[in-house]
Nucleic acid binder design. Structure first.
Length: 257
DNA sequence: ATGGTCGATGGTCGA
């Protein structure tokens, strides 16, 4: 059994204590982290070594920043996507044992009429191209990330509340569908079909306790990964207690390796 | 419910 996970930590500096205790408890083999908000120089690689993980980090400080932790070795780093717009630290690829892994922090989009929304769609185009290229040589591909897209209405607490906003617009859902059509699967959704299973809750207004969230953090696997999927879960407990990220980790168990 | 919260900052902005 091989466990992969993704978690938007919303500042690794602010979250490090929780991340280390979660690693100890959840014992994942490969972890994709997003929003580290660190420079590469400030990334706490030594602390992860002490916890048993090799790591790669692609950061810029202040905003964005993605990392991969691995207990299965880590090699062949890819910083950024093929033809990626923006030049921000939002995508990091690595080979971890039998898996080719990407940690992804998709642009938020802000609003449907903003340049940042167009940037989001262009960024997703670059992701589709990169995935397509990776699939030519890799059988076992896993994308873990904060996609900032709720693929269908089951993935938001109130479809009415999201009308006219980002995360649910048809172009966003279509570009994610294009990635699925390359042969990839939303690993959590294939096992859990009900509505109201979320990975992100706004800090404001007690959203978590009101169960008002979105499912935007995804583990997406190629066919060879999906065929060997054993279990998936959202670690809701990590959204509780003092000093949580606004995102919960998502985990998957694979019968690989 | 456009934010009453966070985290980057050290003004406000981004989510």
């Amino acid at each position: 059994m091989l466990t992969v996970a993704t978690w938007n930590v919303n500042s690794l500096k602010a979250r490090m204590e929780r991340v280390l205790s979660w690693l100890d408890r959840a014992a994942p083999d490969v972890v994709c982290l997003q929003e580290t908000k660190l420079t590469d120089a400030a990334f706490p690689a030594a602390a992860f070594v002490s916890a048993g993980y090799e790591s790669l980090h692609f950061g810029q400080g202040q905003w964005n920043g993605v990392a991969i932790l691995s207990r299965l070795g880590i090699s062949e780093p890819a910083r950024g996507l093929i033809g990626e717009p923006g030049g921000e630290a939002r995508a990091l690829g690595a080979t971890c044992g039998p898996l080719r892994v990407y940690s992804l922090y998709v642009p938020n989009g802000r609003s449907l009429d903003s340049d940042h929304y167009r940037y989001k769609l262009e960024w997703m185009d670059a992701l589709a191209g990169t995935v397509s290229a990776e699939l030519r040589s890799r059988e076992h591909l896993v994308l873990g990330g904060d996609f900032n897209i709720a693929f269908d209405d089951r993935d938001v607490w109130s479809p009415g509340a999201f009308e006219g906003t980002t995360h649910v617009s048809a172009p966003e859902r279509e570009v994610l569908e294009r990635i699925y059509q390359l042969g990839l699967t939303d690993l959590f959704r294939v096992q859990h079909q009900e509505e109201g299973l979320f990975t992100w809750w706004d800090y404001r207004g007690g959203s978590f306790h009101k169960r008002q969230g979105m499912r935007i953090d995804l583990l997406i696997g190629s066919r060879a990964v999906a065929e060997n999927l054993s279990w998936t879960l959202i670690d809701r407990n990590e959204r509780k207690g003092p000093g949580p990220s606004d995102h919960a980790p998502v985990l998957a168990g694979l019968q690989i390796g």
